[in-house]
Amino acid sequence: MSSKGCPDCGEIKPASEFWKLKASRDGLAYYCKVCFGLRNSRSYRKKRAKLGKKTRAYRRHSDVPEGMKYCARCKEVKSVDEFGRNRAARSGLTDYCRPCHSEAITEIRKRNHGSSRNYLLKLRYGVTEEQVEQMLAEQGGVCVICLRAEPKHVDHDHMTGLVRRILCFKCNGGLGQFDDDPDRLRLAADYLELRGSHARRMRIEIGAPVFGGPGRVRWDPYWRTRGNTLKSARHYHLRQKYGINDEDAKWLLKLQVGHCAVCFDFPAEHVDHDHVTGAVRGLACAGCNTGMGQLRDDPIALRRAADYVTGRLVQRVSAEGGGTRLSLTVPDVDPATVPRGGWKAFWEKDGVYRKETLPFDEELDMPAWGGPDPEGAPRGG
C-alpha cells in the first residue's frame, strides 16, 4: 500500500507514516505514528497518575530538527553543540544541556555527599570536609610550613596518595615546583644564603657571590656608547632589570656548565636575583626559580618544607589535658594557643634549629632544645 487512512485523525497519509505490524492484514499499524504516540502517552500518563506521579507534557522526538536536541531540564530545543559528550548514550550526548547538566550534577552531589567540596575531597584525597576542618583546627588555622598564611589547599603525597596536611597556596605550589624533593629544597636554602657550591665558585671567579644589579647601569661608563647600543632586545632587558648584559649571561651559563645553579639537575633558563638588592645570584631552572619565589625566597621556609616532605616537621606529641596534639616548631608550642601573627619568635628559633641539624641527626642522642649553648652558638634538639 502506498497510503492509508488513520481512523483517529481522519487523514490519509503515506504508508511511511505508519509503523509496520506483521499481524495486520496490510502489514501496517492501525493508527498513524502521531496518533499512535498520543494514545501511548495517554495510557502511560494515566498509569503514572494512579501512582501519584507527575509527568512532562507529551513531545515527539521527531519534532526536533536535525542538528538540535531537546533538554528535558530547561525544556528547550538547543543546538547539539550546547550538550556535552556521553559515550554511554545512543546519541553520544548528555541528556541535559551544559548549564543544566552542571546544575543537576551539583544537586546530586549535594544530595549524596552534602556538598560539591565534600564530594571532591573524598574523590581526590579520600577525606571528608569534616576531617579537613579538624586538621585545620589542629594546625591552629595556619599553614604548617610558613606559619603565616591561611591554609586552603589539601596537600598529599603523590607517591602514596595519602593526605599530609593543609597548606597555603604558595607553599603547596612551591613543593610542586621542587617535585617534593627535600634535597633540592635544602640546596635552595643554602643557595639563597650564598653558602652553596655556586656561591663559592663565584667568589673564586669574581671575588663576590653575586654581581650586577640596577646600580651597575648608573656607574657603567660604556652604557651610552655606540658599541653598546647596537644590541639585542634581550641585552637591554638584562641591563635594565638585572644590571648584566648578554656577555655576562653567557659567561654565567658557561661557569655553571649549562646547569641550574641550585639543583644542578636541569638546564639553567632563568636569571635569578635578590629581590631586595637586585643583585644576580645565578641562572636557575624553571622549577627552582619559581619554587623559591613561591616560598618567598626564605631559607627557613625552604628547610621547613624539606622536613615537611620527609615527615620531620609535623610531629604528634602528648597534650597537657590528655590525648595528643600537633607540634610544628622547635621549641615546641601548641599551635592552638598561638594567635595569628604570633609565630615570629618561634619561627626564628626553629630556623636556627633546622639550619644546624640534618635529617640523620634524629638517630643520634641529641640533647633537648634549651637555647644557646655556653659559647653562644645554638644547638639542636
Results as ranks from 00 to 15, higher is better:
Pro65Thr: 10
Asp181Ser: 10
Ala261Trp: 00
Arg87His: 14
Lys231Ile: 00
Gly278Met: 13
Arg117Asp: 11
Thr106Trp: 10
Phe264Val: 01
Arg184Met: 06
Ala301Met: 10
Lys122Tyr: 02
Ser79Met: 01
Arg200Lys: 14
Arg303Phe: 06
Asp248Met: 11
Tyr222Lys: 14
Arg59Phe: 05
Leu358Ile: 14
Val80Asp: 00
Gly243Tyr: 09
Asp157Tyr: 04
Ala305Thr: 04
Ala57Glu: 06
Pro221Ser: 11
Glu107Met: 07
Pro214Thr: 12
Ser232Lys: 10
Ala15Thr: 13
Tyr96Ser: 10
Ala88Phe: 10
Glu348Thr: 13
Asp180Pro: 02
Pro299Gln: 04
Phe346Ser: 13
His259Ala: 06
Pro221Cys: 09
Leu358Lys: 14
Pro374Arg: 05
Arg117Ile: 05
Gln256Lys: 03
Arg148Gln: 10
Arg117Lys: 14
Val352Asp: 12
Gly140Cys: 05
Arg39Ala: 14
Lys231Glu: 02
His235Tyr: 06
Ile105Phe: 14
Ala149Tyr: 08
Ala306Thr: 12
Arg124Lys: 11
Glu66Cys: 12
Asp361Met: 08
Met159Arg: 10
Val276Lys: 15
Glu130Thr: 07
Ala233Asp: 05
Tyr222Met: 15
Cys143Ser: 00
Pro299Trp: 07
Val330Ser: 08
Leu255Met: 10
Pro151Met: 06
Pro65Gln: 08
Asn289Glu: 01
Asn112Phe: 05
Pro339Val: 13
Tyr30Val: 13
Ala261Tyr: 01
Ala305Arg: 00
Pro14Met: 11
Ala49Leu: 14
Val154Leu: 00
Glu375Val: 09
Met366Ser: 08
Glu205Phe: 00
Leu175Trp: 09
Phe346Gln: 11
Thr290Asp: 13
Glu76Asp: 12
Ala49Asp: 11
Thr94Leu: 06
Lys4Trp: 05
Cys171Ile: 02
Arg239Gly: 06
Arg73Met: 15
Lys75Asn: 11
Ser232Gln: 12
Cys285Trp: 04
Asn118Glu: 02
Lys349His: 05
Ala249Val: 07
Ala345Asn: 08
Cys97Pro: 13
Gly174Gln: 03
Pro339Tyr: 14
Pro267Val: 05
His270Trp: 07
Leu38Tyr: 14
Arg164Thr: 02
Glu11Pro: 03
Gly215Gln: 13
Leu194Lys: 09
Ser2Cys: 02
Gln240Lys: 12
His61Pro: 08
Phe360Cys: 09
Arg201Lys: 11
Ser41Pro: 04
Arg201Ile: 06
Ala104Gln: 15
Asp298Phe: 09
Asp180Ala: 04
Arg42Glu: 13
Arg312Thr: 00
Cys97Gly: 12
Ala305Phe: 03
Gly126Met: 12
Ile204Glu: 10
His275Asn: 13
Tyr242Val: 06
Lys4Gly: 05
Trp369Lys: 00
Thr55Val: 13
Gln134Phe: 03
Gly370Ser: 09
Asp179Asn: 08
Gly291Ile: 07
Asp365Ile: 03
Lys349Gln: 14
Arg379His: 09
Leu192Ala: 05
Asp265Thr: 02
Arg216Ala: 11
Val271Trp: 01
His158Tyr: 02
Val210Tyr: 03
His158Val: 00
Asp220Trp: 04
Pro374Val: 01
Tyr242Trp: 11
Leu238Tyr: 07
Pro14Leu: 14
Cys74Arg: 09
